[in-house]
Amino acid sequence: MTGHPARHAPATAHINAIGTALPPHEIHAAYHGLVDHMLPDPRKRAIYDRMAKRSAIDRRYSFIRSGDAVDDGYEHADSFYAPGAYPGTSSRMRQYEKWAPELALDAIGQLDGDITDQGITHVIVASCTGFVAPGLDQILIKRTGIDPSAERTLVGFMGCYAAVNSLRLAHHIVRSTPEARVLVVNVELCTLHLQETQDLDKLLAMLLFSDGASAALVTAEPKGIALLDFRAASIPGSADLITWHITDQGFLMHLDGHVPARIAEALGMERSRNAPDGILRGQAVADYDLWAVHAGGRSILDAVERGLELPAQALAPSRAVLRENGNMSSATLMFVLARMMAGKTPGTPPQSGIGMAFGPGLAAESFRFNLL
């Protein structure tokens, strides 16, 4: 009679470090000037002004340089966003090819030490705001000096919840190959897709978005953030609430005003159901110390807080990221996690947390973690 070989628990993936980067140009006030030019209707401008004041955003950043005065609107030195002559998709993609690698490299440079000394075995890049081939994965490997034999994966066009999907890939890689050292990059140039329009809903949606990048090192080394499990869910009948289409004039986003209410309703049902297969994994809200929620907008954060009946300060890190940076699509959640890591006092007990992000589908991607 022969015995079965001992089974060992799979390795736990940890986010050891997160680097973040913003482009140099602060453009939030300049965008208001641009809207003034595009909204001749005083009634619509009044609605926009009221909603902008409620956005809970103080600053947003772009690789595009704004004018020196608000009245100049939002334009590049070469009139990239010239009134009446907004660029086509090919021009926008050329800008993406030029600037996305630079912003990603800035984020990688914020990680501890030279990335070439980290023994990177896998590179995961998430981005939904542009396309280029050879891809950003290959460009970054070449520019950083990472071993070109590193395995590469691109997570494309998934929107705001791509951060969770890219971390999940890293989680599975480390679980199956404990010696793996995974570089996860999220880079988004959302301001590349401004539209010249008098549609108030579109202008309010564009009010949220900005540019940013993050880089994370994920390994089995037990420090930083331990990634425990991942789960995906969708809200039936909500596929048309968030859409993202490629047009001749850039990528066109539709963000329905019913999104926050649907999220609050769905999360409220999840909280009441309290099932092991739900987003809370059968645990009570009080069982989680930290809430890393994608800062998609004030109304989204309010919906999460309302639906789950969270304490008033539970979403403070997410609200701070929104206030200081706006919505950077897939990079945003990584900024929230970076803030949590930076705020952890060495030597204090681990904290349990749950992360979540929402996007087209309408879908939610979530994960549990421990901040060590």
Rank of each mutant, 00 (worst) to 15 (best):
290 L>K: 10
317 P>V: 07
331 A>Q: 07
281 R>P: 00
309 E>L: 12
299 S>G: 00
317 P>A: 08
278 G>R: 08
340 M>W: 06
277 D>C: 09
301 L>N: 00
330 S>G: 05
323 R>P: 05
279 I>D: 09
293 V>D: 07
282 G>E: 10
338 A>I: 08
287 D>G: 05
318 S>N: 11
342 A>F: 01
285 V>T: 13
316 A>R: 13
305 E>H: 11
332 T>S: 15
280 L>P: 07
333 L>R: 06
294 H>N: 05
291 W>P: 00
318 S>L: 10
314 A>D: 00
312 A>C: 00
313 Q>S: 04
310 L>S: 04
305 E>C: 07
343 G>D: 13
282 G>R: 04
311 P>S: 11
304 V>Y: 04
325 N>A: 04
320 A>G: 13
286 A>W: 02
326 G>P: 08
332 T>G: 01
330 S>F: 02
328 M>K: 02
316 A>E: 10
341 M>H: 11
312 A>H: 11
298 R>S: 12
291 W>N: 00
277 D>N: 12
285 V>D: 10
322 L>K: 05
332 T>D: 00
343 G>N: 09
306 R>K: 12
331 A>I: 09
288 Y>M: 07
283 Q>I: 02
284 A>H: 09
331 A>Y: 10
319 R>A: 11
328 M>Q: 11
297 G>T: 05
296 G>E: 09
332 T>E: 06
307 G>A: 04
311 P>A: 15
304 V>R: 06
307 G>V: 02
301 L>A: 01
328 M>V: 07
318 S>W: 15
307 G>I: 02
291 W>E: 03
328 M>P: 10
279 I>W: 10
283 Q>F: 13
286 A>T: 14
346 P>M: 13
290 L>H: 14
336 V>M: 05
299 S>Y: 00
329 S>C: 13
328 M>F: 03
335 F>H: 08
298 R>H: 08
282 G>V: 04
301 L>W: 02
279 I>T: 05
333 L>E: 06
317 P>Q: 09
298 R>A: 14
278 G>D: 01
323 R>D: 12
344 K>I: 10
318 S>M: 11
280 L>R: 10
327 N>H: 11
309 E>R: 15
305 E>I: 01
313 Q>R: 11
299 S>K: 14
337 L>I: 14
344 K>W: 14
337 L>G: 01
333 L>P: 01
341 M>V: 14
302 D>S: 11
293 V>Y: 06
339 R>G: 15
283 Q>T: 02
324 E>F: 01
304 V>M: 02
282 G>C: 03
287 D>P: 00
330 S>T: 02
314 A>T: 02
310 L>W: 02
297 G>E: 07
308 L>V: 03
328 M>S: 04
339 R>W: 00
338 A>Y: 01
308 L>A: 04
